[in-house]
Amino acid sequence: MNIKKTLKALSDAPGIGCIRSASEIAKKELSRYAEVSTTDNLGIIGRIPGKSDRTLMIEAHIDEIGFIVTAVDDKGFLTVSTCGGIDLRALPSRQVDIHGKRTVRGVFCSTPPHLSEGDITFDKISDMKIDSCLGESAKDVISVGDYVTFCTKSRELAGDLICGKSFDDRAGICVLLELASRFSKKTPPLNLAFCLSDMEEIGLRGAKTATYGISPDEAIAIDVSFGDGPEIDPNDCGKIGKGAMIGVSPIIDREISDKLIRIAAESEIPYQTEVMSSRTGTDADTISLNKNGVRTGLVSIPLRNMHTDCEIISVSDITRVCDLLENYIEGGGLND
């Protein structure tokens, strides 16, 4: 599988609520390598049977941040609510796709210069409006409950970095697809369940029901975490291009963390550790609480500008996460 090409296609596609373009792309790719089922409307599961009875679930979320329309006025301006954590300060003059009866391009209103004297405060999303650019005919196309997504197309930067709107967590999805591709040609030591879950950004929901259905013996969540930059405290971030961020936290299984670190060191796969003191803010938090508990790990890919429409990621970091996970699976997971 061409990771860069797949990542671009996945990121450029919208995927929120009932807008499932990204899911469709992922599902098509996954079904080339694994037996695919769609569970409980919250996610996609791909299975590759292994040599033992144990099941390892590898999980990433398919949904992205966005907005939902809560009102449409007579002049074509929309009031929206956020789906996921969004920096309101960066919204003015940002373009979005409004998924109504047809998809139309909109623009977040910005305060005109003659009215912006003094400091503007960004308190709540309901203060900000989207110009549908449709004027009075907006109501013919857009209804409350319609979804709105960012709309930038991914672009290549220097080296192997690319920017795009939803590498969080389509990069994780890419890892799942690549692993499925690698194990479609060989039988893994244990059953693999690839879980592409929904509704992470609105409260780690899809992973809850999907994990219940899969009932794995162990699980590893693949997500993104903060990448470095001049204004970012080095203690708060990993370094882009320096490999997988292996999560260590009270909610993460210590043995999985240790084994991942050992494998990375032995196989000379570049890695960094990400130590957290409690919940991780990823699906690992919810997966570990499934039924009577699941031993769960977390591997993150460093990402700059998280939750913006120009997130930046390194393709080699994604490849290294794939290499690390491939080795971990080859090693039989926890049960070696």
Partner: peptide
């Protein structure tokens, strides 16, 4: 990309 501190931080 004009970049800065993400909202989470």
């Amino acid at each position: 990309v004009i970049s800065g501190k993400p909202i989470h931080l």
